[in-house]
Amino acid sequence: MVGHTLELRGSPFLQEIIREVPGGERIVHCLQCGTCGGSCPNGADMEYTPRTILAMITANQRDKVLKANTMWFCVSCYSCVSRCPQKIPITDIMYGLKRISIREKAYQETDAPALAKTFTDLLDKYGRSFELGLASRYYLFNRPLAMLKMGPMGLSMFTRGRMSLTPTRIRNVDQLQAIIRKARELGGVS
């Protein structure tokens, strides 16, 4: 039994997740009870439920996990986390899988990485998010057709003063950028 546990801990993919995600080492306590998948608003549309994903991480099924749609269907609602009897940070594990999948371009058929990149690029540049800039850049480059469907809605938001044409820029953008640069240099949480 002890040998078995050690072997599981030894899964290289599990080790990788532990380095990537604060609290990731708690995966070894997963009971495979399925509470997480049952609580997930998008569980039914995921290729593998959160419970299955954790089992696959332990079983070192790296490629399959990184290609799965599971993490891209995660909307960070934390239902699973607040119900998990073992306090496993499932949402943060999903974030970790998204990051690895982006770094290795393993994702398939999702625009989520492009959306995230557009968003954080604007943040890095201005210090604030800027919806109109976000929507127009993201749609223009990724989903030009969807932009047409968005038209009427965008217009009604605009006429109600809910969409600005110019971004707000924080005063100390240099300071923010220095902080972000340092984070990139340190390259991760562990």
Binding site: E20, V21, V75, D92, G96, R99, L115, F119, T120, G187
Partner: peptide, 11 residues
Amino acid sequence: ATEYFTQDELA
């Protein structure tokens, strides 16, 4: 929002 955690946890 959720977008930075999707890309870079430390940042």
